[in-house]
Design a protein around this nucleic acid. Structure first.
Lengths: 198, 198
DNA sequence: AATAAAAGAGAACAAAATGTTCGTTATCAA
DNA sequence: TTGATAACGAACATTTTGTTCTCTTTTATT
């Protein structure tokens, strides 16, 4: 790809994210974006059809990468840790999020966070589903599988939101413990809230 | 209040909600609202400062009422049922939602559902907090109280969203069972997913 | 029934934002 | 070096917003 294209694209993304940290998505105009990015109006519309299109492409870039890292990572094994698998997928995700990866947490706490959270949850659903399939330890009390998937990924996303709203006072390991405390009891291997290691 | 005012207000709300079921909030113009409501432009701005203001007032009317009904209802007792309290708060809420109360479920599944879900969750947080206070059976495994409140109300809201997206195939009682199955184990009274009555 | 006050209708308006077109200039890859 | 491509910038029609004005209808009160 032409260097100029990539440069312009990056400048627009950067300006857009900077604006998102200041004001809600709906209040941001194309004019503001191109002023901040220092590109021409024509250039913007050559890259993105609309402002919505820009937002969509940003989401895809961010969450495609973050979930991809969790799936590919060889250190993660299953929903939560045991002797053979020292690190849960979720703990890995939390660490990855905290390592300021393109400041994804900033976007999750911005005024337009709903948009990003929706993308985040949709991305997570696939991950959770595959984890449930490989760790088929569910206590089937006639609870639908997709209800559980939705419950688990929603809980994770909402926990991350709670975390960033509260200025990230906890470490990823602590958060992982909270998460296992509320999600762990749903599995049949005896893990219980009262037996969580602290 | 003058009948004309109430009539106009209702017409605008009604038109707005009808439009929300067709297209996302951001694509709805004031012109469309006043055309559908059959009121003049001046009239709209006499009632609402902006389109955002209209949305806010609609949310307040809807969720203020729905949560108020849960708090006031004498048949609800605590987070989940026992012999002396045949109906949980959440089951009552679900029934109330299903009784097509101003079609609140339609709004929770519309293209702009994020907005309503946020209001819904914020309203619920207060309710959950009061319930936790009166039923102080939490297993305190050094898990912050506000984390749990967030987890519970988020789980409820996300369950409702999952429900309406799946065309409401379950009854409120079934949903209540699902909810207690994933939330119940967090309490110290011995209720466990494997002991849930089916 | 008469009347003053309040509410709405309808047209017109400026301002802001959108998305497009065109000719020109700068930069890239070969 | 040179043809191709990307960006610039100015101008433009269009849409949406929010306001202002005059005129008409409805309401509550006497």
């Amino acid at each position: 790809m032409d260097r100029r294209q990539q440069k312009t694209r990056d400048a627009i993304f950067s300006a857009f994210r900077s604006l998102l940290s200041e004001k809600p998505y709906s209040k941001i105009t194309v004019q503001e974006i191109i002023d901040a990015a220092n590109v021409g109006r024509t250039t913007f519309y050559a890259h993105f059809q609309t402002k919505d299109d820009l937002l969509k492409e940003l989401c895809e870039e961010l969450f495609g990468h973050i979930i991809g890292s969790a799936i590919d990572c060889p250190h993660t094994h299953g929903l939560y840790s045991d002797e053979t698998a020292p690190e849960s997928v979720f703990c890995h995700l939390l660490q990855h999020l905290q390592q300021n990866h393109q400041n994804i947490l900033g976007l999750l706490s911005c005024e337009s966070s709903e948009i990003f959270l929706r993308y985040f949850k949709d991305s997570l659903n696939g991950l959770v589903e595959s984890q449930l399939a490989s760790h088929n330890k569910l206590t089937d009390a006639h609870i639908p599988q997709d209800f559980l998937i939705n419950h688990i990924s929603s809980s994770f996303v909402e926990m991350v939101l709670w975390w960033v709203k509260g200025h990230r006072k906890q470490t990823p390991a602590e958060l992982d413990r909270y998460f296992r405390a509320v999600i762990g009891p749903l599995f049949s291997d005896g893990t219980n809230v009262s037996s969580i290691k602290i």
